[in-house]
Design a protein around this nucleic acid. Sequence first.
RNA 1: GCGAUCGUAGCUCAGUUGGUUAGAGCACCGGUUUGUGGUACCGGGGGUCGUGGGUUCAAGUCCCAUCGGUCGCCCCA
Length: 443
Amino acid sequence: MSKDKSAKIPTPQPVRGTQDMLGDFADRFAHVVETFERVRRLYGFKRIEVPVIEPTAVFARSLGETTDVVSKEMYSFEDRGGESITLRPEFTAGIARAYVTNGWQQFAPLKVATHGPLFRYERPQKGRYRQFHQLDAEVIGSDSPLADAELLVFADQLLKELGIAEGVTLTLNTLGDADSREAWRAALVAHFEAHRGDLSEDSLARLDKNPLRILDSKDPRDRPIADSAPDIDSYLTGEAQDFFGAVTAALDAAGVAWQRNARLVRGLDYYRHTAFEFVTDRLGAQGTVLGGGRYDGLIEALGGPPTAAVGWAAGIERLAMLVPDAKESPLPEIVILPQDEAMERLSSRIANILRTADNEISTEIALAGAYRKRYDKVKNAGYARAISLEPHEGAVCIARIRDLNVEGVKDVRDRVEAALGKFFLLEEMDQGFSRPWILQEKV
RNA sequence: GCGAUCGUAGCUCAGUUGGUUAGAGCACCGGUUUGUGGUACCGGGGGUCGUGGGUUCAAGUCCCAUCGGUCGCCCCA
């Protein structure tokens, strides 16, 4: 290490809105993913992998050119061939594209699940990052309300198994079919136009771009107008009512608790029927931990055949923040304490013996610092057992098992003895409780 | 894009109305001590106080700008 400060190399900073995880949070993150992978198998969802990068058109066309996401929140760039590429801001569009380009119609209805990183160019805040991670589940090619219900039961079980169902509520709404939605939208616009003078500036802009969004405005000036706006219920066609009734009946039959939220909407036009969010008040401004709905119009918008589909996505970081107790990744069962340089060289050989598939004793080697201080270090690090390697005249070494922390002690002595016994002659010394072995090479 | 708030050692932080050579704990390195044990002690390295200007005899401290973090607004597939 040079002390010459003029030669100091500036450290590149991480990209804004990205995060590095170590220890506790990384364990929580992994726990969420592992639980998801286990539960999705119980529901027969196939694992699917789709690219992180797609042609920009995949998202531009599916999300709508005018949405904020497309106009300013996508990570897009030109590749060397001049094609516009975008880092996926969501899973659904890429999965829909894969469904069409691979001819997966033959598998319909197709139940798929995936997880991984997504990218949105947004201002980071609690529970919102530019690179974030989601779980995702989709049912493509089914117009049955039972598909919606199964996805919701799946989501409900996932949250329960993660131990975060307390304080998280399933809120549910229907946007009806295309006819219902159009009629409701017209009624809403008429209602808001009538109160145009009392709306906030933000909502005046929404009136042109996305009037449904006024319903969940946070501005107190908008609340009375939004609250007095017509519900969709009186605009639902008979078919749309039946569909929603079938979804809720299936949820009730499965014992999934839900709340109607007639104000819950989706921004994009291709959403139909079911819309839902699992929400909590424990994450600041980011209340949604899992959200989704039915998007019967999407695949057609990508040039595919008319295809019914429904799905959800959940933020892994948000779920990880709610997981009650972090499951720490366990320390290796035993840690090797070499007592000098020669023993240090021997320790990787001993470690390899213990770690082999036959023996499966997870092993760490204490390599840093003065030999005499390593004992205290590994003890403070929480290891339960150590095996010290001491030089001994005329032998390979003396190996001594030492209990470090009373908590979590597991008797690995017999397993270590069996493992080492395959390679060395072990002579047990009569030295108190530790009963060290003198190791000799087998001839 | 807008607003609020915070930037002092690797980490968590202290630093009095501006006033000597900027501190602590943890971590790291070394030494002594101990030797079935979460030992104790001694010493050491490490900071242009985010960066750049300004005010002042004097700035970690006050002012402006800028960058970054955090939280919120917008948006949220």
